[in-house]
Amino acid sequence: MIFWRAIAAATLLAAAPALLAGEIPPDARRSGYSFMGPDTRAMQDDDTSNPGMLFVLDGETLWGKKTGSAEKACADCHGDARSSMKGVAARYPAFDKALTRPVTLDQRINLCRSNHQQATPLPYESRDLLALSAFIAHQSRGVAITTGDDPELKPFVAQGRDLFTQREGQLNLACTNCHDDNYSKHLAGAPVTQGQPTGYPLYRLEWQTLGSLERRLRSCMSGVRAQAYDYGAPELVALELYLMSRARGLQMETPAVRP
């Protein structure tokens, strides 16, 4: 009996390499939402109980507020966000022709601030930056993710995929080991999801605040005891880009709630 179990384990091992870095087929892609308990889902679903909505409201105020020495508000250039920003977050990170590299939504907001508003960039994870990006991404709620269409993004998506499959840290684990090969299983009793970036910035009960996708990725890196990349580092942008292209077709949920 015991002997057979060992054989079964060995057979499983032999099969493992084929599964490694196995990409999730489109029809099997699932948001982290589908792994949550009913309470957390209810909190996300009801705008009056979703704490992320407070940030969205703040973002709406900032959208209309004149800033910087140009004395311009976002709305002065982009008008009503409900129409002008619909679907935008669902295709970010996007290629920036001037910089010849992909930029995240947060970086785009700061580029607008320095180039068009003559204002200082907002620090990563600051309340104002999270509020603005939550407000903008909220306009895409329900829109299917299309990030990665631009052919110029190709090498950066590939870089992100390499980083996703690269083992790292003292625990020597890659993102793919958990989020492709072991989703639906449990790490110490908590479900491992596919790591789909559908709801960012999102409210994590653990954080007790809104946080960016980069914050999440840095947490996973620290989790495997790797040196996390700095906010805005090209590697984090590439990872974010890969994750968004990997989530193609899934709907945006911003602001999502996660445990």
Binding site: G211, R218, S219, S222, R225, A228
Partner: peptide, 9 residues
Amino acid sequence: AGEGWGEGV
């Protein structure tokens, strides 16, 4: 070390 998995779940 920066932020941890502690924040994960």
